[in-house]
Amino acid sequence: MTTPPDQGELTVRFLLNGEPVAVAVPPHWTLLEVLRYRLDLIGTKQGCDKGDCGACTVQLDGKAVPSCLVLGSAVDGRAVTTVEGLRGPTLHPLFDAFDHAVAAQCGFCTPGIVMAAEAYLRRLGRPVTRAEAAAALAGNLCRCTGYTKILDAVVAASERLHGAGGG
């Protein structure tokens, strides 16, 4: 197998927030760059650009990953969910819990944290403890909140999504 000397842009086809898309992507662009600067999905934030902060967390095939360390071309054939994918006619329980607890101060870390939390809660499918939530979010830095209200919100959302005491 040989790669052409000048690849130009690659056409990458994937499921983005549930919809099939085809996007022209320069080979050296990261998924974060493709989302933010090609597709205007600005909900995914950048805080370090090298895996240290978690602000860029999205879901790849349902798992939370830092999009700054994924090549745009690598998502071909896969499913990418960004924070925009959680929008709907009603407020997602995680958003509602974050809002209620005032778990977002500047809000810059929040989309990434919500994506990590959503993947985790979906995988567990039961209410979680603060300690579990802390471990699941330990790749996402927040500089504003001391995590206190974030963990409150995740625990509350897990109870709402999966029934208190139900697991």
Binding site: M1, T2, T3, P5, Q7, P27, H28, K50, S73, D76
Partner: peptide
């Protein structure tokens, strides 16, 4: 941003293809 340098990508599906690339 911390931009990546330019490169091409290959996406082999077999080990033989990967070794060739």
């Amino acid at each position: 941003m911390l931009r990546l340098p330019g490169f091409r990508v290959a996406s082999p599906t077999t080990i033989a293809e990967a070794v060739a690339a």
